[in-house]
Amino acid sequence: MTSERDTILRVRDLSVDIPVPSGTLHAVRNVDLSAIRGRTLAIVGESGCGKTMTALAVMRLLPGRARLRAREIGLEGTDLRSLSDKAFSAIRGNRMAMIFQDPMTSLNPVYPIGDQLEEIHIRHRGSGRREARERAEYLLARVGIVNPGTRLRQFPHQLSGGLRQRIMIAMALMCDPALIVADEPTTALDVTVQAQVLHLLKDLQAEFDMALILITHDLGIVARIADRIAVMYAGRIVETGSSRQIFAAPTHPYTQGLIDCIPYPGKTERRTALGSIPGIVPSLVGDAPGCMFRNRCAMAEERCRDGGNVERSVEDGHSYRCVHPVERLRGTMVPS
């Protein structure tokens, strides 16, 4: 379906360990994923599931103490693992770029935003100030900012949250990257602004033919813009499939629980109890063989203690990690 050339990013067997006083925290375990040109991969999960750590590992932005292991992290055919930090920084911001949740902390408050945009182009492309400014003005206009020339001279605090997030998007696009990783790009925004920013991301993705990895906890956003979905829980991808497969036939008990939790106007009956997942996320410190979801799972049995991490296939392109066969999981859809 997709040729090698279209696979922009391929990650195989990625793990991130963080030493903590009480042992080793396994933030990410054995994650495989790939990002395809022109497509959107959504990584979904709740706080602490490892979705941001996965992105930071790809971008080589992990906190200093963290240890990364992977069999492959390939971007456009280059194995990123073998690059020196210097060689890596020539790629980050250039061939791949990241958009963070809070634009206020990712923009430098003491420089005009123009300087911050232009610097990227000058550094990676070796362009002159004028060329960089033209590119910045073009992109600001492209992300829907009126009078970009004026905005470029302003400082981050002079702009609204929605504007700042548009500027972050323009910044990520400065060097025409092949891959954009957006971590909760609309979480801090109002719903109406959220819709605008998501539209913008989608349009730009098509126009620049980029691969997009979207990290979010919001299943509504995921359903509306993702092509493929990876559901993470406690550091592992527990289910992966196309957007249609995941929402039409959620298979892992965690995925089913997550979808059941959210109120769905017109579908969930008003003022009735929502589905909920009892308990809390387990500690990620120390070795934990077996399924990490078992202490919250209605279907847990003895063998979940040491099994449950083998990938099983539902159908082409849709797989999950659980000891139970599909029929069993489907037969006991969580009652709502």
Binding site: V191, K202, G220, R244
Partner: peptide, 25 residues
Amino acid sequence: ETLLRSILTPDPALGLPPGPFDGEF
């Protein structure tokens, strides 16, 4: 109406709703 249109229910068949409005708050 505009606010309601921007609710994203988890239905992959729907795609993004039409942009609510341009222009700033």
